[in-house]
């Protein structure tokens, strides 16, 4: 895994990371402030804040795909913003509409994120089959987003996987990350790397 240094991090990401890190900082009196180590499911909405992003790694992990249409100065980061639902729901599906694409192949799946330009065609996100399930234990998030799919250019890419992250029960700020190897299709061998951050609403 390539180590991210501040030289490569876009300014927006660096600032948001600092804010999120500060917000997620574990208080010394964790147990006294109500953080429980028992595993509890978080069913609700993981709101997607503007500093969430997606990256795609070439086969072999040698380099990242550059999306010239990314709003970030570092084009290997494709910034994503909340869609009509406000973010990713757990315990429920957020399927793509029918039809799922316009005549150019732009995704119309706009519930999780607003469809975002990726190399000239908009991609959207949806969940199919298995609803996402995420639990918190203390400050640690674990779970699955098996049905997570990225829709682009009349194609649907499975981007499901096991998620990990952190959660602050006082501020409800979360960070979720996972990676998913693309198997088959034009991006076979690429790995999608997802980083969602924002607040959780039950």
């Amino acid at each position: 895994m390539r180590r991210m240094t501040s030289r490569f991090l876009p300014r927006t990401i660096t600032l948001s990371t600092l804010v999120v890190s500060a917000t997620l900082a574990v208080p010394a009196t964790a147990t006294a402030t109500g953080a429980s180590s028992a595993t509890q499911p978080l069913n609700g909405l993981f709101r997607v804040a503007a500093s969430s992003y997606f990256r795609m790694v070439y086969p072999g992990g040698a380099k990242y795909f550059k999306n010239p249409y990314s709003a970030d100065p570092n084009k290997t980061y494709t910034l994503i913003v909340a869609g009509s639902d406000g973010g990713l729901r757990t315990g429920a599906l957020q399927p793509a509409p029918a039809p799922a694409f316009d005549h150019h192949g732009n995704s119309l799946a706009g519930r999780i994120i607003r469809p975002t330009d990726f190399a000239g065609i908009n991609f959207g996100l949806a969940t199919k089959g298995t609803a996402p399930a995420i639990s918190v234990s203390g400050y640690r998030l674990t779970g699955q987003v098996k049905g997570f799919t990225a829709e682009w250019n009349n194609l649907s890419f499975s981007q499901g996987g096991q998620v990990t992250g952190s959660y602050n029960a006082q501020t409800h700020v979360y960070v979720l990350t996972w990676s998913s190897l693309i198997s088959g299709g034009p991006f076979n061998g690429f790995t999608g790397s997802w980083h969602l951050t924002g607040t959780f609403v039950s």
Partner: peptide, 19 residues
């Protein structure tokens, strides 16, 4: 994989033209 790489290069080129 080489053609996948060409695709990435073309996307960057098109972006430069357009943007």
């Amino acid at each position: 994989e080489r053609i996948q790489g060409y695709f990435g290069d073309m996307a960057v080129g098109q972006g430069a033209v357009q943007l």
